[in-house]
């Protein structure tokens, strides 16, 4: 997985179209917000566009230029907030900070690339999304929160690894249980082997002795009961 902002050009259909998502991996659209402008780093607004919040990423697509679009994974969104102070930014917006590769968030580099006129998307650490309907800001903020929680760190895979070990233990336990039940099955064959070896009488008498013991005890009780009822 690559951190940071990236170009996004895969669209479906005619006209502005829609972003092509990774539906095979369960990506789904959580919110479509039309009429949203975008501002990357300290650059000026780009508009008009449509914001797509999916279960994995934030995608902004220009409504007029099919070649223009940006996307950032929720895994790369360090922080998001609602910004309403006109002194900080002229329009109320969703303000986000983006984690970039190398942890190199040197502002001078950003301005360097800006001075050349080409913006290196992978170094953009700030993104503002400005919906024309600012009453939607709080809703968008909450959707960002929900989606962020849908995307925990991939470190979680290590925990899954532990789960695998747990599963293996469980399989082992099940195997042991299986062996136990198998052991019961093997109780009888030795007797059969005893028969075939000519120890028929010995094996049989032992079995009978055990059975007789039990019956004898029961019978004795029965007899006692019978005796007491007779007396």
């Amino acid at each position: 997985m690559v951190l940071g902002l990236r170009q996004f050009t895969q669209r479906t259909g005619e006209g502005a179209g829609e972003p092509i998502l990774d539906v095979n991996n369960g990506e789904e659209i959580m919110r479509v917000q039309p009429s949203v402008s975008i501002a990357l780093a300290n650059r000026s607004l780009e508009s008009p566009g449509t914001l797509y919040i999916t279960s994995k990423q934030v995608v902004w697509l220009s409504d007029v230029d099919r070649a223009k679009g940006y996307a950032v994974d929720f895994l790369s969104l360090s922080l998001h907030a609602v910004s309403r102070d006109p002194e900080a930014y002229h329009s109320p917006c969703i303000y986000t900070q983006i984690e970039v590769e190398d942890g190199d968030n040197d502002e001078s580099e950003g301005s360097d690339s800006e001075s050349v006129g080409v913006l290196d998307l992978s170094k953009v650490t700030e993104m503002r999304l400005i919906p024309s309907d600012s009453s939607q800001l709080d809703t968008l903020f909450e959707i960002f929160c929900e989606c962020a929680e849908l995307n925990p760190e991939p470190i979680e895979e290590e925990e899954e690894g532990h789960n695998w070990i747990f599963s293996a233990d469980q399989i082992e336990n099940e195997a042991t249980v299986g062996a136990d039940s198998g052991w019961h099955f093997f109780q009888d064959p030795p007797n059969s082997i005893g028969h075939s070896n000519g120890d028929h009488d010995l094996a049989n008498s032992v079995l009978q002795l055990q059975i007789n013991d039990q019956r004898f005890e029961d019978a004795e009780e029965m007899e006692r009961d019978n005796d007491s009822s007779k007396h």
Binding site: L79, A81, V82, S83, D85, A88, Y89, E126, F144
Partner: peptide, 12 residues
């Protein structure tokens, strides 16, 4: 300076 305006925020 731009973070001044933010009243509430979500931090990963």
């Amino acid at each position: 300076p731009h973070m001044l305006s933010v009243r509430n925020c979500f931090i990963r």
